[in-house]
Amino acid sequence: MDTPVKRSLYEPTQQNLIFPEMPAFSSHEEERRYRKEHLVGACRMFAKQKFDYGFAGHLTIRDPEHPDLYWTNPMAVPFSKVNMSNLILADHKGNVVQGDYAINQAGFVLHAAVHEEHPDILAMCHAHTIYGTAWAATGRELDPISQDAAAFFEDHCVIDEEAGKVAVEVQAGGKVSAAFGKYRAAIHRNHGLLTASRHSIDAAAFWFLALERCCQQQLLIEASGIKPVLVPPDKARYSREHVGSEYIGWLHFQPHYQEALAENPDMLA
């Protein structure tokens, strides 16, 4: 019998140990529920991390049966109050096709453009966070100052177009979506952070959290005035391969999801 190929070095070699497993689905409805549950879990994680800023911030996951539609959090509902029953389903033109709430216009412009231009991208996250917004004002990519930052080495970019301008016009989305043909994370100058995943909302949400933390770490280093020792390119690429994959992002998210379930019994209502 062939030995199953390991997706990461973190998968146990011993049998019968408890370890998160990616589910297999027997129907679109089953997969849809999973994606929606984890979208809600991502919103609750954003709430715990205090990523709220008024009505700003939007997370999306593509519908498995209707890939031209995506599920997203409702407009002007705090991340801590997003649940299964108030999610909305929208098309690429910003029309709500299922749900009672309005859509965030800026969320439509940015996310719809990325989802439409890149059919393989399943999920996307954006929020107005403290450290990501502060670092975005520098107009610089992050340096590989740590193993955590190395996860984004050569896999993120700075977007200068429409920087600082509220993204409510359709053309703004097109300029942002071009970046995600190559990268999974972007620093939109004078705006903030965006992440996308071809794997899951789990991965997009965790890598958003990781990117925010990397911005915080970089700002702390710069404030110290001490020049950091950077991870060499070959070692940064090695770390990115082993701790920066889509699967690892999914795996990292699972403790956050379990925590959200335990602390928020209303989230799947």
Rank of each mutant, 00 (worst) to 15 (best):
N86Y: 10
N86T: 07
L87P: 00
L87D: 01
L87Y: 03
I88L: 06
I88M: 06
I88P: 00
I88R: 02
L89R: 12
L89Y: 14
L89P: 04
A90G: 07
D91L: 10
H92P: 09
H92F: 14
H92M: 14
H92D: 10
K93A: 11
G94R: 01
N95L: 09
N95P: 03
N95H: 13
V96A: 04
V96C: 08
V97F: 06
V97S: 05
V97L: 10
V97G: 05
Q98T: 07
G99Y: 12
G99I: 13
G99D: 07
D100K: 11
D100E: 09
Y101L: 03
Y101I: 05
Y101T: 03
Y101H: 08
Y101W: 09
A102T: 13
A102Q: 12
I103M: 07
I103D: 00
N104Q: 02
N104G: 02
Q105Y: 12
Q105D: 03
G107E: 00
G107I: 00
G107A: 05
V109S: 05
H111G: 07
H111T: 14
A112M: 09
A112T: 14
A113E: 01
A113R: 00
V114F: 02
H115W: 05
H115I: 09
H115P: 03
H115G: 03
E116M: 07
E116C: 08
H118V: 15
D120H: 11
I121R: 00
I121F: 04
L122G: 02
L122N: 04
L122M: 08
A123C: 04
A123T: 03
M124A: 13
C125K: 00
H126Q: 09
A127Y: 08
A127W: 04
H128W: 14
H128C: 12
H128M: 11
T129G: 11
T129L: 10
T129M: 09
I130D: 10
G132D: 13
G132I: 15
G132P: 10
G132K: 14
A134C: 13
A134Q: 12
A134D: 04
A136G: 06
A137Q: 06
T138Y: 11
T138A: 05
R140G: 05
R140E: 13
E141L: 13
L142N: 14
L142Q: 14
L142S: 14
D143E: 13
D143N: 09
D143W: 11
D143G: 06
D143T: 12
P144V: 09
I145T: 05
I145A: 02
I145D: 01
S146F: 02
S146T: 06
S146L: 04
Q147V: 12
Q147K: 08
Q147N: 10
D148V: 02
A149T: 14
A149R: 03
A150T: 08
A150K: 04
A150F: 04
A151D: 01
F153T: 06
F153E: 02
D155G: 06
C157K: 10
C157G: 08
V158Y: 07
I159P: 00
I159V: 11
D160V: 14
E161I: 15
E161K: 15
E162I: 15
A163R: 09
